[in-house]
Write a protein that binds this DNA or RNA. Sequence first.
DNA 1: TGTACATCAGTGAACGCGCGTTCACTGATGTAC
DNA 2: TGTACATCAGTGAACGCGCGTTCACTGATGTAC
Lengths: 221, 221
Amino acid sequence: MFKIKVVKTVTGKREEKKEVLRQALVKAAGHRISKLGLGGLRARDIAKDAGCALGSLYTVFTDIDELILHVNSNTLSKLGVVMEAAARRVDSPQDVLVALANEYLKFATENRNIWAALFDHRIPEGAGEPEWHVAEHLVLMRGITIPLARLLPTLNENQLAVQARILFAAVHGIVSIGLHGHFVAVPRRDLESQLTQFIKRIIVGYQSSSNKVDNIDLENE
Amino acid sequence: MFKIKVVKTVTGKREEKKEVLRQALVKAAGHRISKLGLGGLRARDIAKDAGCALGSLYTVFTDIDELILHVNSNTLSKLGVVMEAAARRVDSPQDVLVALANEYLKFATENRNIWAALFDHRIPEGAGEPEWHVAEHLVLMRGITIPLARLLPTLNENQLAVQARILFAAVHGIVSIGLHGHFVAVPRRDLESQLTQFIKRIIVGYQSSSNKVDNIDLENE
DNA sequence: TGTACATCAGTGAACGCGCGTTCACTGATGTAC
DNA sequence: TGTACATCAGTGAACGCGCGTTCACTGATGTAC
């Protein structure tokens, strides 16, 4: 037992250092992206900031893209944490949905570049994102599905998933165009209240008897 | 009079040819983008497709970016045409809004890459897009404002503009995430009906007496 | 524990290449008389 | 109308440079006995 532990520790020293390097690189890349955006990211700069040689980057990641993927993974997890916290601060499913939308806006505003990297980073040609990364997206969706299920108890799992995605996409669009200023945007200071009203309107739409989601959705299954 | 006309024609021959070249380049660039996306665009290829030398491109545009701007301008104008036509095919403001959203989805689906270029193209560093291009965006917004004004007659100009932008942003988000498959998307075949339901829900939200837009919006003015 | 050997992380200069942009040249278009 | 000269569009080879990635080398960590 003792022997095994020692061997493990000693043998692990290499893997341990590698892990430290990995973290340092992800952190450095994150800072660079925060400051200059995804487009301002250079392998050389990351290595320099992380305090290692350029080549080291490639002993730990196969690619710059792989490194970015890890940065995005971190971002997603941070986003998940604040969203969950926001949801916990209120009770009714209506308030939770509003809180989630506003927290998303807040996160995007305060972490512009690193948030934008989530969407700007395109996987090159071949197969898409690895499953572990897709799974992280799903966790976020889950946070929306929960209040939605309380709000619309007649929907099944699949219908809820679809509504969560639609809702997220709509909010993302508003936040994205609002911050980016692409096309003509809504003044920043109005965004939050507009977003809140927007969510409330959709909730009213969900609840209106003439427009029940379960009636409609079944068309598609 | 006759003399002037002749002089004009002859003198105009240079400018005329230049214009032909300009159009050819924009067209060629458009095709390239359609096929390979904005990321697959190369100055050499465009010139080749347009049947001119590489250098010619720079006698007509200062930049690749300027050329792309013109392609986007074309796209915007095409989009405007189909949206307007779609709006004319129905009567009630509700139906117009639904039709506009669905036409937007259709346009994006059928012109993926060239549509994506509208949003993917980032102006380098310095000052933003030229005003003539911004004006083109406004025309699109105008198309949304009109039915919205009929639906919500108590809103003033400014409030309508904000609502139009929010609505556009939300629809864009749904279409964008739906098509791009970024994050986990809604199955394509469901998108249209989901989008329709979505718009209907928002309209219900607008009309619900407990959630009047004019009551809310005035907070911000 | 100590010594000899093996492995592999870490290095950073050099490679390679893609690609936007320029520039000296030519030939067509325009002007003057 | 015709001729001599001027202008400027059009050309494409060459420039330049940014930057991801590699690779021969070194030194630290790990293994065997």
